[in-house]
Design a binder for these strands. Structure first.
Length: 132
DNA sequence: ACCATGACTAGAA
DNA sequence: CTTCTAGCCATGG
């Protein structure tokens, strides 16, 4: 294909109509579905989620999706989502800045200087584990 | 339809 | 090594 960027192609991956019969799913909901599947005691990154959804270049959207996830139900374990460095970049968006770290600690994840210890080992790749 | 925002990421200086 | 720039794309005004 020549120059035109296949915007439609991208949209296709995102729209990904739900076979169950759900007509439309917002990008946000897709993100929530993935985040909800993060096992306890594991973490993942925004980029990984974005990649899983097909739009790996829109990691920002994942974070933004979390913005509206705090009061959704079921509760979204947003504390298990961090940036690519394992840093708690979103801790300031929780009820209290220490909430995120506390939740992680509760699951056995150690946090030092806002960075998750052993992030590489705790990393959970949604693209491999989820069957979304 | 256009512009601004955002809890990101990768590459360059 | 650290710091900065630009790209990225969905949502809302």
């Amino acid at each position: 294909m020549p120059k035109t960027k296949n915007k439609n192609a991208k949209q296709e991956s995102i729209s990904r109509v739900n076979p169950s019969g759900r007509k439309e799913e917002s990008f946000f909901e897709l993100v929530y579905q993935v985040v909800r599947q993060i096992p306890k005691g594991r973490v993942t990154s925004y980029g990984a989620i974005a990649t899983c959804l097909g739009t790996k270049l829109s990691a920002r959207m994942v974070g933004w999706a979390m913005h509206g996830a705090h009061s959704l139900k079921p509760r979204i374990p947003a504390h298990r989502v961090v940036n690519r460095n394992g840093m708690l970049s979103g801790k300031h968006h929780f009820e209290t800045p220490t909430r995120m770290e506390a939740l992680l600690k509760k699951e056995g994840i150690l946090v030092k200087n806002d960075i998750i210890v052993n992030f590489d080992k705790l990393f959970w790749d949604p693209a491999k584990e989820t069957s979304i």
